[in-house]
């Protein structure tokens, strides 16, 4: 056998520029097909929407639509962080407790310690990020699975909330500026919706377009490969935990913009609603793939169901029943679609 120094051997097919261009164009259409996963989800959402629009009185009233959007705010914001975490191969069950604690700490600081509301907010956001940092370091340094670590963190934070309040809600008052920035209205639109849209768009951009986002996908997709490529996977995971903690506490801050009370039951069970939104949105629970756009649609769908059922005169207790069905349908659809696309590629 001989080798030809200085280049690939001749008389063999070489991927020249023009064939490559054709392939790239084919890929774009393939890419669009990929996007159909989110489109299909959106279609299901629209079908649900149409069903409620036809059956539920006043469903289409602008006021009601805005109230659906507002109902999505908290779950949507926390879901953004959770999407990062799940794509990176981790999970945080303490988000609801973190959210609830944020409202309580804020109320306590304002009411009992006479701290300014914006100062209290700063402390609360710092605390949320700190909880995320502790979760992240705990999981990455001890090797305890995040499911277990954050389950424990959830219990601890819930208990702290109860200890601070003695089990009673804390009522407090905030300045006009604070109430406007976190709970006011721009025309008919609640400003909280603007915050949520901003966080969803920013979060989607950071995940899809920045090196950090790329490394989040790589960490959850194949941690060993990421590490060998020089990515510090521990640091990536810790950042995802911090982001999730920060967003959980920020969601708490937003709540205090409109409801001036801290309640130890705030946020109970939210962790599962948030995970449901992420999973309905097509993010793989085992890490490596997913998107913020999908998550946002998932979160909106959950809020839609609750609202529509009430207006239809069906018991609100049926909400979780429908949610359960939607989770199964969405994930099943996702699996089917993936297989279709795989066959298309081959």
């Amino acid at each position: 056998m001989t080798h030809v120094p200085g280049g690939a051997a001749d008389n063999r097919p070489v991927g020249d520029a023009s064939t490559q261009a054709v392939l790239e164009r084919q890929a774009s259409s393939l890419h669009i097909l990929w996007r159909t996963r989110e489109a299909l989800l959106l279609a299901v959402g629209i079908a649900l929407f149409a069903a409620f629009a036809l059956t539920a009185p006043h469903f289409l009233d602008l006021g009601n639509l805005l109230s659906i959007a507002r109902g999505t705010v908290v779950v949507a914001i926390i879901s953004v962080g959770m999407t990062y975490l799940i794509i990176a191969g981790e999970l945080d069950l303490s988000v609801g407790a973190n959210f609830g604690l944020a409202t309580i700490v804020l109320g306590t600081l304002v009411q009992n310690y006479n701290l300014g509301d914006f100062q209290a907010m700063t402390v609360v956001l710092f605390l949320g990020a700190l909880i995320g940092l502790i979760n992240g370091l705990g999981v990455t340094l001890t090797g305890i699975p995040s499911l277990i670590w954050t389950l424990a963190a959830m219990f601890v934070l819930q208990s702290v909330s109860l200890l601070i309040t003695g089990g009673y809600p804390i009522l407090f008052s905030v300045s006009k500026a604070y109430a406007f920035i976190f709970g006011g209205r721009l025309g008919m639109v609640n400003i909280q919706i603007v915050w949520a849209i901003g966080i969803v768009v920013g979060g989607a951009w950071m995940l899809a377009g920045t090196r950090f986002g790329y490394h989040v996908y790589a960490t959850g997709g194949n941690a060993e490969a990421a590490e060998r490529a020089g990515i510090n996977i521990g640091r990536i995971k810790v950042f995802c935990f911090i982001l999730t903690g920060l967003l959980s506490s920020f969601a708490g801050v937003l709540l205090t913009g409109s409801v001036h009370s801290g309640n130890p039951t705030n946020g109970m069970g939210y962790e599962l609603t948030v995970i449901a939104a992420v999973v309905i949105g097509g993010t793989n629970l085992f890490g490596g793939s997913g998107s913020i756009a999908g998550t946002a649609v998932g979160a909106a769908m959950l809020s839609l169901i609750g609202d529509g059922l009430v207006l239809d005169g069906i018991s609100i207790f049926a909400q979780d029943l429908v949610t359960g069905i939607i989770i199964i349908v969405a994930v099943f659809m996702d699996i089917q679609l993936r297989q279709r696309i795989l066959r298309f590629v081959k």
Partner: peptide, 15 residues
């Protein structure tokens, strides 16, 4: 040491 869920370009420039 490849990330299966990512495309060729992302793997080529991993890290």
């Amino acid at each position: 040491a490849l990330v299966n869920q990512r495309d060729i370009a992302s793997n080529l420039f991993l890290g």
